[in-house]
């Protein structure tokens, strides 16, 4: 049986998860980078339209969306730590809690989408909202896929499919979720805050 100090110490220069997942993450980040820079370019071309349109968004809702995603990311990361300590049951509960926090994001985002659609600010309204719906909608689809992955990982932890020595699949799945967080922390200020 390993001690907690031993399980906490990661070997030097170790890339967590599978290498294939890292290449997948790089590909996803490249696509998001193109979308984000497109948004920035269009904002440069018509700053007044973007400032006026952004005023229709509630940055406090944006903050709540951010905190729900980041909390979910924390719980997923703690789940990996729990498996490294051979506490698979606790890891399953942490992943389910992370899933719950992600559900809060989904509810808030759907409410925001409904509110904007009700005001007629749909994807055809203007350039800002075309890019808003494409950018946040594409991210939203990634959140939904990430939630399926979290649920799958929770079930695998419940079945004790991972242990302290073998949990590369868990690390890879959780890395995907952190990528969703990473994209959001760049997307959030650009879409909701920057004037």
């Amino acid at each position: 049986m390993s001690t907690s100090a031993e399980t906490l110490a990661l070997p030097a220069r170790r890339l967590p998860g599978d290498l294939a997942m890292w290449f997948f993450i790089l590909a996803e980040l490249t696509v998001f980078a193109i979308l984000i820079l497109t948004f920035a370019v269009m904002q440069r071309l018509d700053p007044r339209l973007f400032a006026e349109s952004r005023a229709a968004l509630d940055s406090s809702i944006g903050l709540a969306l951010t905190l729900s995603l980041l909390t979910s990311g924390l719980l997923a990361a703690l789940a990996v730590e729990a498996v490294r300590r051979q506490r698979q049951g606790r890891a399953a509960l942490l992943l389910l809690a992370g899933l719950g926090s992600a559900c809060l994001y989904v509810v808030l985002k759907l409410e925001e989408y409904g509110h904007l659609a009700g005001l007629g600010l749909d994807i055809e309204h203007n350039t800002f909202f075309t890019l808003y719906w494409i950018l946040t909608g594409f991210h939203f689809l990634h959140v939904l896929l990430g939630m399926v992955i979290l649920a799958w990982l929770a079930e695998r932890c419940r079945r004790r499919a991972y242990d302290a020595g073998q949990h590369g699949g868990l690390e890879s799945g959780v890395l995907y979720w952190h990528m969703v967080d990473l994209v959001w922390v760049v997307l959030f200020p650009l879409v909701y805050v920057l004037n």
């Binding site: 990661l10 070997p11 030097a12 220069r13 170790r14 890339l15 967590p16 990311g73 924390l74 997923a76 990361a77 890395l175 952190h178 967080d181 990473l182 922390v185 760049v186």
Partner: peptide, 17 residues
């Protein structure tokens, strides 16, 4: 700063090549 906390902390890249 947030991106750095996620990559180095949550994604554990502080241990990576």
């Amino acid at each position: 700063g947030k991106a750095w906390l996620i990559t180095e902390g949550f994604m554990e890249l502080r241990h990576a090549p």
